[in-house]
């Protein structure tokens, strides 16, 4: 898939972030620039401590960068001088998160785990549950909609988590090792599903992964080394 005239959803320009000072200073991100368009599925690779999760946190508006510029879905979040104040609302409206270990709330059933995001966004209860059921059916876990997370298999729980990430129809989906807890068959199914979602909902997906089995499912793959972002050799950029 080429970038062509795709609408840009994520744009980082010379983003930098460091932790500690003096001898203990670690530059987690060094002027990282990345542009991801609608419908794209992008992977971030790199050894432990290379800055992958830091970059994901910055794009996810969890971590404030030290410098650079960040635009999400046409909205400037950070530009060296100005930081949007209501980052929580921004996350709720524009970003969906998929975690390594699904992170479903153990005290809510599958439907309510998905509906919660909609309720937080102000949707009425019946409408929220209706949309949640729709998403669960779409992800082929509708038959487990009343199950508690503890009673779901790893693959089912991850699908419910994906449904939750999609509930507010975000255009940016950030995934942290989305297939790490799944076997290779289920990992392939989940990635195919994410690709399908990106294409159908005109959203972009940025995933941190170490799972080589799914590399072929990404449009572009970037490698982070010592806080610098580089396109992976042999991959299209």
């Amino acid at each position: 898939m080429g970038q062509g005239a795709r609408e840009t959803l994520v744009e980082t320009a010379a983003i930098s972030k460091h932790f500690g000072e003096g001898e203990t200073r670690v530059d987690a991100l060094r002027e990282v620039s990345l542009t991801v368009g609608a419908g794209e599925v992008v992977a971030l690779l790199g050894p432990s401590g290379s800055g992958k999760t830091t970059l994901l946190n910055v794009i996810g508006c969890i971590l404030e960068p030290d410098g650079g510029r960040l635009r999400l879905d046409g909205e400037t979040v950070y530009d060296d001088r100005w930081l949007r104040q209501d980052l929580r609302r921004l996350r709720l409206d524009k970003i969906g998160f998929i975690f390594q270990f699904h992170n479903l709330l153990p005290f809510l059933d599958a439907t309510d785990n998905v509906a919660l995001v909609l309720r937080l966004a102000g949707r009425e209860r019946t409408a929220a549950r209706g949309r949640a059921t729709e998403l669960l059916d779409y992800l082929e876990v509708g038959n487990r909609k009343d199950s508690m997370p503890a009673n779901l298999s790893g693959g089912e729980a991850q699908r419910v988590a994906i449904a939750r990430a999609l509930a507010n129809s975000p255009r940016i989906i950030l995934a942290d090792e989305p297939t790490a807890a799944l076997d290779s068959r289920r990992a392939g199914i989940v990635m195919d599903l994410l690709r399908k979602l990106a294409a159908e909902q005109d959203a972009c997906i940025i995933a941190v992964t170490h799972d080589e089995k799914i590399y072929d499912r990404f449009d572009r793959i970037f490698h982070l080394r010592d806080g610098r972002l580089e396109p992976r050799e042999g991959a299209s950029t």
Binding site: R88, D93, L105, L120
Partner: peptide
């Protein structure tokens, strides 16, 4: 704490 962190991440306000 993990559930609270998840709630914050998905955009739950402090009052929730």
């Amino acid at each position: 704490l993990r559930e609270i962190a998840t709630l914050k991440l998905i955009g739950a306000p402090d009052r929730t």
